[in-house]
Design a protein around this nucleic acid. Structure first.
Length: 432
RNA sequence: GCCGUCGUAGCUCAGUCGGUAGAGCGUGUGACUGUUAAUCACAAGGUCAACGGUUCGAUCCCGUUCGACGGCGCCA
């Protein structure tokens, strides 16, 4: 016997008059005396089940009448087309089996953000949350498919580390037996080591940042797609970035248009995402923003306000390149054509969603690296293995890190990044 | 780290110019054979975040603490 059809399948190819079985959860019930209307949901959709007294055993009718929201049920009955039913079809129940009852569901009509976050383990049953998770799966699928097709090898760097990759960024410290260690905030240095045997590598790992950031684009734990390739300069790496992001978006467009619409994102917006993306030098960006009336000088970083102003009217991501050396990480390569800047690129999502990728060509000169580390007063002991990479057959190489949830936030038009992950970890929340 | 807003029923909120509190939703009971976040009737449900101060009297005024949310900086 074949398994019962999912609701989405039943609605996509309705077999009117045929008996169907639905395994799902009570989404909503209404009762009108001897008729109970139970809207049932599963992972694919919702359908109305009409339960009439007399059409099924008395105790099953009573069970349907009393079933609270989110009770799990198995319903059997024939499918009918009916304009009065939400979605246009309904199942007239000949059987209604209560599998698991439910307490009064804490999430009802109007709810505060706090309650929804406290009850995240239940809130993820909502259609919006489910849609986001499906889009995210397609983003990851699209990324992996493109990377495989382009000869990037997935590697598995450690999460426990003793390296503070970017100096300034705060780390989660933990006890590692009788020593200290940190949760990784970036796999970059490990990926740099791996290119010497594998050439083109990437990793998909959680990254952890103990930043006390209260914003709509920061998580303390997020999924980080990092990539490193040997024999490539910053310009070549930017092509990888725009092609990869385009592939992610294309996969979403292929699989998840219905979910996008549910979330309020018009798929047509995303069809405009194609390489090449616009490239703007930092100095030009500053000028353009000044022309808009913003008060900026060369050397100040682009903040949230500036990023928003710069990309508000874009439909496609934009690269900003050649940031001043002082405001960027120690491992970024100086640009010989403009030595006050480094060969780096930030990819900014359109519509003001902000940075989704930070990438650069890496400094290969050992002395310059040491100099930068000293200037920033970064303790050198933990970096000896990293400096070794410049001592043994150093090659030009470039790479970047991409925040998966930031991409999902943009693609799904989410107000807050925490909705791009089922159980968000932020500065104020580590539960549930 | 900085700035701001909020905490009253299970939930969303109103309210008390300082005299111990109300609505809607949800829940319970009953009615209803075509509902669309159904409707109608009745009922239960409160240490007004915690602690301290002022006061005859504080949920309300003042202070402290805790919690939550929003924004900045920093980043992906």
């Amino acid at each position: 016997m074949s398994p019962p059809r999912k609701i989405g399948r039943i609605l996509a190819s309705p077999a009117v008059g045929q008996e169907e079985t639905v395994q799902g959860w009570v989404y909503r019930t209404r009762s009108s005396g001897a008729i109970v209307y139970a809207v049932v949901r599963d992972s694919t959709g919702i359908i109305q089940v009409t339960v009439k007294k007399g059409n099924l055993p008395e105790e099953e009718f009573e069970a349907a009448k009393a079933a609270p929201v989110e009770s799990s049920v198995i319903v059997t009955g024939k499918l009918f087309e009916d304009k009065r039913a939400p979605g246009g079809f309904e199942i007239k129940a000949s059987g209604f089996k209560l599998v698991g009852g439910a307490m009064p569901f804490p999430i009802t009509e109007y709810q505060s953000e706090e309650l929804l976050l406290d009850n995240r383990h239940l809130w993820i049953r909502s259609r919006e949350q489910a849609a986001v998770m499906k889009v995210k799966a397609s983003v990851l699928e699209g990324a992996r498919a493109w990377l495989k097709a382009n000869d990037f090898i997935e590697v598995t760097p450690p999460i426990l580390t003793q390296n503070a990759c970017e100096g300034g960024v705060t780390l989660f410290k933990l006890k590692y037996f009788d020593r200290e260690a940190y949760l990784s905030q970036s796999a970059q240095m490990y990926l740099e080591a791996l290119i010497f045997s594998l050439d083109r590598v990437y990793s998909l790992t959680p990254s952890f940042r103990a930043e006390k950031s209260r914003t709509t684009r920061h998580l303390t734990e997020y999924w980080h797609l990092e990539l490193e390739e040997a024999w490539t300069d910053n310009a070549g790496n930017m092509e990888v970035q725009e092609n990869l992001v385009t592939a992610m978006v294309e996969q979403v467009l292929q699989d998840r248009q219905e979910e996008l619409r549910l979330l309020g994102r018009d798929p047509a917006d995303l069809r405009e995402v194609r390489p090449p993306f616009k490239r703007v030098r930092y100095s030009q960006a500053i000028e353009a923003l000044r022309a808009q009336g913003l008060d900026l000088s060369f050397g100040s970083d682009l903040g949230a306000v500036e990023e928003r102003a710069f990309t508000a009217n874009e439909k496609v991501p934009v690269f900003v390149t050649n940031f001043p050396k002082e405001i960027k990480a120690f491992y970024m390569k100086e640009d010989p054509e403009e030595p006050s800047t480094v060969k780096c690129a930030d990819m900014l999502a359109p519509e003001g969603y902000g940075e989704i990728i930070g990438g650069s060509e890496r400094e290969t000169d050992l002395d310059k690296l040491v100099e930068r580390l000293q200037a920033l007063e970064i303790p050198m002991e933990a970096y000896q293995w990293y400096l070794d990479l410049r001592r043994f057959g150093s090659v030009p190489h470039s790479g970047f890190g991409l925040g998966i949830e930031r991409v999902v936030r943009w693609v799904c038009r989410l107000e807050h990044i925490r909705d791009a992950v089922p159980f968000p970890r932020t500065v104020a929340r580590c539960y549930p």
